[in-house]
Design a protein around this nucleic acid. Structure first.
Lengths: 344, 344
DNA sequence: ATTAGCACTCTTAAGGCCAGAGTGCTAAGA
DNA sequence: TCTTAGCACTCTGGCCTTAAGAGTGCTAAT
């Protein structure tokens, strides 16, 4: 069966109405609210067709229709018109990023908060990808009166990481300072892939003793920089999702909360999306357990064109897609701009 | 009315039964399950007395009785017998703390996880009190190719904090190193109250230029060390509380989730408890909004006798108090031991 | 002081009923 | 051939009634 113009109009009307009201929508409603110039009966026929095509479904015989996952997909791909934010909203976003924010963690936390606030869905933000990060600064500090030391590393992504580790008893504060200086000189600006070989040899030559300690530090650095999925995850507006009528059932709530509690799962929903731009995952397109009744829209943020990380919104499949997309684009844009400024 | 022996037995039986089953308990049940040697009718009379005394209440005329907040309070204070953990459980706790844990953040996160796992309630842990903390290490690192610097501070509580801040254009890396050295020498081992006056003058004398920068750094340090309520809060097992039958009502769930989302509120429930030892807050004894149907049991952890912070469990007033107390005591003990070892 | 007995109350689950909403089909009209 | 009016049919959800069950409070007897 082909998708003629009127079928598209009917589908669009149903999706829009359902997103708005949350109630299954019937032929009368469509005929009354959307001027398609045909009678309910005609619309009924179209609806039957659309159901056969898998774009609509019926909760039960005498209810109206609701969009299926495929229905939403078709709507999002072919029918939806972008909803512009109002100038006031755009201004509001810009102003939120005008506060002085010096730590990238804060910026991302604020971003998640802003997103959830503007959409009443649950916002997720992923910290900058550390995979291709470059070391900016390395420093080893003694921890007073213990046999421990603190490794501080600043990466090119602006993340500051620290690890405490145990050092041999015979290492003095001066040793640590010297090692810091050597490491810093050798490692600064170096990506992790290049690390192991040549540089290492140089370092060893410079600081003959303390090989073990240096190896330990290098391992920690690799952990910080290279570890898959070490990105921080920021979550805001868990409560929001409970106001959605689809989650008035406690079992559903538990399912989704169980999902939100697992940080690796949150990370995976970003990993599963292609590198750049906007991604929409509708219902069962989500492979993670517990969110097959949800949609996730994600977008990447970038610094000077280079993708750093992602932010996204999680809501029911009956999500206000056009608004969510506009909000995400606007916020990701401001975020990218803000970070670019930060790094300069 | 006086509280004779039999009244106590009846109250204890009702509380215990209600904690176990979650159902209002009737006179028959008590007579059958707990051998008090009297008939249901006698127990009914006692129950009527206990209700008049405000220790029990009746959901409706023809239901059994449930304990009131006062009933729980009396039970906790006078009737409850401590429930020992099994040796296996104690061993399990000890073993969980035997993993090598180098960062105090990790330890607290693990503690919260362990608590929620062992009790099926929601666990909250509060990071070490920074109020009387002493500076162990201060270091200012340049952030490569920007006009920003990174301040790293290690406190005597084992917390590592960092802040990025903007520096004037004319400050060189060497300046930063020198300032770090001076600061470190002057501030190490100093509590914050002593900071402002004398020491400051010394520092200024040593590093004549860069007064503004130093002032900025000191401000940041005070922020890190002195700020009321800067302690980190660790939360685990939100999902657990939803399995409690008292939260099968979605409104209740929203209320409590709204509470758990507000970090300052979480902090306040610890602030409200006296300095040391175990505290139990039942129902309306909690002054925070949204948890007046909950109980909170908290306990402090300490290093070498000095109180560092607190951990606690949040559940419905129908909480398994004796078990919660035992678990908290066991865990706080292991936690304190583990931290003491860490600081040595 | 205790207890058996009993009338009474209240909740909850189940069943029946009905209005409302919406459909699918058929047959007539454009 | 497409559209539409009309109508019978279906399903849900609210509402009422009913009945069972649980538990109480009171009274009178032990």
């Amino acid at each position: 069966m082909r998708m003629d113009e009127r079928k598209k109009q009917v589908l669009a009307a149903i999706v829009q109405d359902y997103i708005l009201t949350g109630e299954p929508v019937g032929s009368r409603t469509i005929a009354r609210r959307y001027n398609l110039g045909v009678s309910p009966a005609t619309i009924r026929n179209e609806m039957a067709d659309l159901e056969e095509m898998g774009l609509l479904e019926q909760p039960h015989t005498s209810a109206g229709r609701i969009p299926s996952d495929y229905g939403y997909r078709y709507y999002v791909d072919c029918l939806m018109e972008p909803e512009k934010l109002t100038p006031a909203e755009e201004e509001y976003v810009r102003q939120r990023y005008n506060q002085k924010m010096l730590e990238i963690e804060q910026v991302l936390e604020e971003t998640a908060r802003l997103l959830s606030e503007m959409t009443a869905y649950t916002a997720i933000a992923l910290g900058p990808n550390q995979n291709n990060a470059i070391l900016e600064q390395v420093q080893i500090l003694p921890v007073h009166s213990t046999n421990k030391a603190l490794l501080v590393a600043v990466t090119s992504t602006g993340m500051v990481e620290h690890r405490i580790f145990t050092i041999p008893g015979n290492v003095t504060t001066e040793d640590l300072t010297r090692i810091s200086r050597v490491l810093n000189a050798s490692l600064q600006g170096i990506a992790l892939e290049e690390l192991r070989q040549a540089v290492l040899r140089d370092i060893y030559r410079e600081v003959a003793q303390h090989r073990g300690l240096i190896k330990q530090v290098i391992d920690l650095l690799q952990q910080i920089l290279a570890l898959e999925g070490s990105e921080k995850v920021y979550l805001e507006g868990i409560l929001n999702i409970l106001s959605q009528p689809e989650f008035k059932n406690l079992e559903k709530v538990k399912e989704i909360l169980a999902f939100l509690e697992r940080e690796e799962a949150l990370r995976r929903i970003f990993k599963a999306t292609p590198g750049s731009g906007l991604t929409i995952r509708i219902g069962q397109e989500n492979k993670e357990e517990g969110i097959d009744k949800c949609s996730v829209v994600t977008i990447s943020y970038a610094v000077e064109g280079k993708i750093m990380g992602k932010v996204g919104l999680l809501g029911p499949t009956r999500m206000h897609y056009s608004r969510v997309i506009s909000v995400l684009q606007c916020v990701a844009d401001s975020l990218s701009r803000s970070l670019t400024q930060f790094y300069r």
